[in-house]
């Protein structure tokens, strides 16, 4: 870990300004991902801006009938919130499928969205990795790729996004609220938050330097059956090989987002439209243009079968 300076600003605006003014600055919230990466020198911030005490830890009803989730709401608190459990069960289930109790106590809503890939080559600083060291190459393409992405990938990077929560947020049409250094705010639909790797896999989202996520807004409840099915090698404390987050209405329509297969939570409107026609049709749309490796081609079959199980559970 490199030495760094640290500050705990008094306001959201001050935090954004502080970060904007310094290239190596980063926000720190729960630190469950950032600190690990700093110890390995994968992240080397020169300055940390602690946003834990900015009052961003509340969950409030919105005038539109939705929920405004503060960026610093801990995963445990979010999963346990009565309104979330009642109206956004998908989110609660996705959160509880992730990490461990200890990590969820610490991890935050915004931090979870921005967590970085668990690609093993990203984590080993001796190995080429375009995401960690742009231009060095991708070790995973010809190496160990079983847990990695099959859609949305590029020749530069096949890393997958590890979040469970983000999959639920994507299916629930969440919107990310931010504040920029100049004090202006903007709303970013979660679909637009993460970028695909292309030839710049080190740039993972659309936030500007200094732009701070303050909240995640959920629109009014979507109803239907809300199912989160996480498929993994062991029963707990493992990242998803494939995760299906679905909202299915009694008439068979609905929406579905997939985790574990792409550099971002993966959803296609065309696939949603096919849901009434069954898993095969929807999966075909979700996986259009897939570029699997020999190691992870099984995910194509797994997406379809897991989705089939989810739709059948929704019907039952």
């Amino acid at each position: 870990m490199r030495a760094f300076s640290y500050e705990r600003p008094a306001s959201i605006e001050a935090a954004a300004q502080a970060a904007a003014g310094m290239d190596g600055a980063k926000f720190i919230a729960g630190g469950t991902n950032l600190l690990d990466l700093m110890k390995l020198e994968i992240e080397r911030p020169t300055h940390l801006i602690d946003v834990n005490r900015l009052g961003l830890d509340r969950i409030e009803a919105t005038p539109e009938g939705g929920l405004r989730i503060g960026a610093l709401v801990r995963n445990t608190d979010l999963a346990a919130d009565e309104r979330v459990r009642r109206d956004y069960a998908l989110l609660s289930r996705a959160l509880l499928a992730g990490a461990s109790g200890q990590l969820r106590n610490r991890a935050t809503t915004a931090g979870n969205l921005l967590q970085r890939t668990r690609c093993p080559y990203f984590y080993d600083t001796n190995q080429p990795c375009n995401k960690r060291l742009p231009g060095s190459g991708c070790s995973a393409l010809a190496g160990f790729s079983r847990p990695l992405a099959v859609v949305g990938v590029s020749d530069a990077c096949i890393a997958s996004h590890p979040s469970d929560m983000a999959v639920a947020m994507r299916a629930l049409d969440a919107v990310v609220e931010t504040v920029r250094a100049d004090g202006t705010t903007r709303s970013i639909p979660i679909a637009d938050l993460h970028r695909l790797p292309g030839d710049t896999p080190h740039i993972e989202h659309v936030l500007e330097q200094g732009e701070l996520i303050t909240a995640v807004i959920l629109p009014k409840p979507a109803g239907g059956k809300q199912i989160y099915r996480k498929v993994r090698d062991r029963a707990s404390y493992a990242f998803a090989l494939v995760a299906v987050g679905a909202v299915v209405q009694p008439d068979g329509t609905g929406r579905v987002a997939i985790g574990g297969i792409a550099p971002k939570p993966w959803r296609k409107e065309a696939a949603d439209a096919e849901l009434p026609n069954g898993a095969k049709a929807a999966a075909a749309k979700l996986l259009e243009g897939a570029r699997p490796t020999d190691d992870n081609a099984f995910k194509l079959t797994l997406v379809e079968r897991a989705l089939s199980a989810v739709l059948s559970e929704a019907r039952g």
Binding site: Y123, D124, G143, P147, R234, Y237
Partner: peptide, 25 residues
């Protein structure tokens, strides 16, 4: 332990990636 046959090492070298059973298993 997954061997990277080009680079010659065990890739999944931590307890997140080398999965031993947990209580739930």
């Amino acid at each position: 332990l997954v061997v990277d046959k080009e680079r010659g090492f065990f890739v999944n070298h931590d307890l997140a990636a080398y999965e031993v059973p947990v209580h739930a298993d």
